[in-house]
Every structure is written in C-alpha cells, then in structure tokens.
Design a protein around this nucleic acid. Sequence first.
DNA 1: TTATCATATCATCAAACGATGATATGATAA
DNA 2: TTATCATATCATCGTTTGATGATATGATAA
Lengths: 116, 116
Amino acid sequence: MLLAAQTTRVEIKARLFRGFSDPSRLKILESLRDGAQTVGAIVECTALSQSNVSNHLSCLRDCGLVMAEQRGKFVEYRLSDPRVEELLILAEILLADVAHGVYECTRYSTEERAVE
Amino acid sequence: MLLAAQTTRVEIKARLFRGFSDPSRLKILESLRDGAQTVGAIVECTALSQSNVSNHLSCLRDCGLVMAEQRGKFVEYRLSDPRVEELLILAEILLADVAHGVYECTRYSTEERAVE
DNA sequence: TTATCATATCATCAAACGATGATATGATAA
DNA sequence: TTATCATATCATCGTTTGATGATATGATAA
C-alpha cells in the first residue's frame, strides 16, 4: 500500500514525461541535441511560431529540461542535462521495436482511429 | 531541413512519451515492475476504477508497452520490454535533480499555479 | 533619447484527453 | 444450460492542453 505517499512522486514523474510528450516540445528538444540554439534558430528549424516556441521553452525551462543564457540581444537555449538526451535516445531505441504499435494506438493518445 | 520527413517520427515519439505521461498509466506501469499482474490486482494496487484501468491497459497494450496473457478467467499483464522499465528508471534518476523544477512548472503541464 | 530587433507574456478558443457509469463479452463453475 | 466472475468496450462529459494573435519587455544600435 504505497499509495498516498507515492501519489505526488508519480504525478511529478508524469509531468516530467509530459515535457517530452508533445511533438512541438520534442522538436525543440531535438533541435538542441547538437548544442545551444538561439530562440530564432529554434523557430526556424522547427517551423513553429515564435510565441509557440517561446511558450514551450518557458515550460521546458521551468521544468529544468533546458537552460537559457542571454547572449547580447539573443537568448541561447541548451539541454540542461545529458540525461535529457539519454531519455530521447532510449525512447528511440525502444521505438525501433514498438513504433508500429505506438502508431496505431489511439485511445488516450490521439483522435484519429488507425486505418482498418 | 529535416522537417517533413521527420514529422511522423517526432509524432510517434511524442505518443510513446504520452504513454508515460499520465499518473494513472504510470501507476499501472509501476505496478508491473515487479512482475506480471492480474487486472484485478492492478485495480487494487493503483486504487483506480476497473474501467479506468482497463481503458489505460488497452492503450498501453496497443502501444506495445505491456503484454496481456489469458490465465484461466484472469488476464495477466506484464511490461513487454525491459527498456520500458529502463525509461522509468532513467526518468527517476533525472528527477532526482530536476524534480523541483518539474513540480513548479505549470504551463503546458498542469492547471495549478505553484505556491508563491 | 528613439527605433528596432529578439524574446516573453498572456488571454482566448478549439481540440484532445481522461474518468465515469452502463453495458457487453468471455471464461469458468454449477 | 444458466449463473457468476473478470475484463473489455463505449458514449458522455468536464477538464486540460496547445496554438494563435496581440502586446509587452528587454536589449542593442543609431
């Protein structure tokens, strides 16, 4: 019965994964894998709108997944911890085996039903 | 410009993480870390409703994160791959450092504002 | 100073998500 | 067979989420 005490821990863990669970945020994280990037550069290479990127960066920064540093009139973002990239890599490895299932999974995942 | 081709890949990756990004699903996955469990056992140890657990299990199974096996009138579920647990472990390790930030992060993450 | 560039903030709105309750299915026991 | 137990399915509904557009802030250049 590790319920009550663990609730908060599970919720925090879920929030951590939620940082990775949105395509836009993932694009941003991926774009930082090769090193620090300006917000403008992220906007360009993700093809997302500026305010959208900025909103997501704010979230990722608050969560501690990325770090910001002012560089003149630019702000550079980088992954805050190598384990962030490790998680991305591990997910890729797992996906190599389960990608098809993930793609077809719809409930609690996406609105479109898989093609029959 | 790795955009168009990568879109699907990023979306699938996001869906994989979404499997881990809900407290109820995480509770279910955690409850399977020590081995296979009956649906009833999962219901009991997560304190979630039966239909809720069943819905989530269906999602997790379709995604390939867990496997089901009929055992008499019961159905046993287990993690389908050791890397599922590896992801959980890696997340825990990362959380040891960023948990506080994750807890306070609200935009794109939870409705409640962190306490001032 | 003012103008301009780079980024952040915020309210709004539509869409996706997850919990619930009712019901269906499927397996075993009687 | 019928009854019962275990699980699955499904529609509904309230909540959460993310994109957008408008605007604010903050930094540098003129």
